[in-house]
């Protein structure tokens, strides 16, 4: 059996030499009667071989969105049976639903800041998906690439293209279309090209979508001013680095802070903001809860006062402190603590 490393090495050897500034992503195969919308290579926790994952459809149905995909072993790595439900690094953690890798999937709409994960259901996988034992090849038929499906939360009608997370891998630019793929077959995981798995409308209607939609956060930092613009779902925030605004344990603004706050004020005005903005102080988890809460409140007030002086009429400023209660990163790392020490300016939605 070829290992993942051997496969990658062989692939690299056969590849065209990389040219800096390359402008096109790799092409997709054109296959009669089979839409191939995206492809990627996927690893397995129990098997050193890589599999090819192909996305064939992301289709709206009543109450959900069906993701159709197949997995297969490349010709030069065929061998023993492959259990594709174990592919994806054993991930059940990113966009989780249930307890199986087959349910850790999502349609990622980075533009709108939302991800549509699997619907929860009382099934062996914990979601509406291909069964664990079905998504495999046998030693007698190792060349087969079975098709699997998982039912995700409803992707809104006005979303045309999304990225997809499945089997721990990400692919971009998958169109969202209407209606299930046809023809359907009774087989749970048919070989690709022989029909598509059917989806039980009654099961979709009974599924639980209450924990299926995830907010995404997109962070872009202006390094010259130490201001990070965060898009959190539909909410836009400006995160100011408290280490730049204040000395340690202090709530008096540094000389550098004036420039940072002035830049933030320009961004707020440029965004056409009106109404009330909220300035919130946050700390890392060092020191006590009460100390951090007080420090965060004093820091928020200091930034709020300075900001208010630079904003036009029609924008009012409210301040509050959260202490260490709302971390955005891991307080167990120095980098995470630094990110948690911040003053956030939340713009009206």
């Amino acid at each position: 059996m070829r290992t993942a490393a051997a496969t990658l090495a062989a692939l690299a050897l056969t590849a065209t030499p990389t040219v800096a500034g390359a402008t096109e992503a790799p092409p997709l195969p054109t296959v009669e009667d089979v839409p191939v919308l995206a492809q990627t290579w996927v690893g397995n926790v129990n098997d050193d071989r890589l599999a090819v994952l192909s996305v064939h459809g992301l289709r709206r149905i009543d109450g959900g969105t069906v993701l159709y995909y197949s997995m297969g072993t490349p010709q030069d790595a065929l061998g023993d049976r492959a259990t594709f439900s174990a592919y994806g690094n054993g991930n059940t953690y990113v966009f989780p639903q249930g307890t199986n890798t087959l349910c850790a999937a999502a349609a990622v709409d980075a533009e709108q800041g939302l991800a549509y994960g699997a619907l929860a259901a009382s099934t062996p996988t914990g979601c509406l998906s291909t069964g664990i034992v079905d998504f495999a090849t046998t030693a007698e038929d190792p060349e087969r690439a079975p098709v699997a499906h998982v039912v995700l939360a409803e992707v809104p009608d006005d979303v045309d293209v999304v990225d997809v997370f499945v089997a721990s891998q990400l692919v971009q630019g998958v169109p969202v279309e209407d209606g299930p793929l046809e023809p359907t077959v009774e087989e749970a995981a048919p070989a690709v090209g022989t029909g598509w798995p059917s989806v039980d409308a009654a099961e979709v209607a009974e599924a639980d979508d209450s924990r299926s939609v995830f907010d995404l956060q997109s962070r872009v930092k202006d390094l010259s001013e130490d201001v990070t613009t965060t898009q959190d779902g539909e909410q836009q925030e400006l995160d100011l680095d408290a280490s730049v605004l204040f000395a340690t344990d202090e709530a008096r603004l540094t000389s550098r802070a004036r420039s940072v706050i002035a830049d933030a004020a320009e961004q707020i005005e440029a965004a056409g903001t009106s109404g009330t903005i909220t300035v919130t102080g946050h700390t890392d988890s060092n020191a006590s809860d009460s100390y951090n809460l007080d420090l965060s409140q004093r820091r928020a007030r200091a930034v709020g006062r300075a900001l208010e002086q630079r904003l036009p009429d029609g924008i009012t400023v409210r301040t509050e402190g959260k202490g260490e209660a709302e971390p955005i990163a891991d307080n167990g790392t120095a980098e995470g603590r630094a990110l948690n020490r911040r003053v956030t300016i939340t713009l009206p939605s």
């Binding site: 990658l8 790799p26 195969p29 054109t30 089979v34 191939v36 290579w41 192909s54 297969g72």
Partner: peptide, 29 residues
């Protein structure tokens, strides 16, 4: 809508396209 150009089972016998799909994947460069 259905998959573009997908025939119904009554029109043509299904064909296993596994090799075309898998072996047509672009290598990682």
């Amino acid at each position: 809508a259905s998959a573009t150009g997908t025939p119904s089972p009554s029109e043509t016998a299904p064909v296993d396209r596994s090799r075309e799909v898998v072996d047509g994947a672009a290598p990682l460069e």
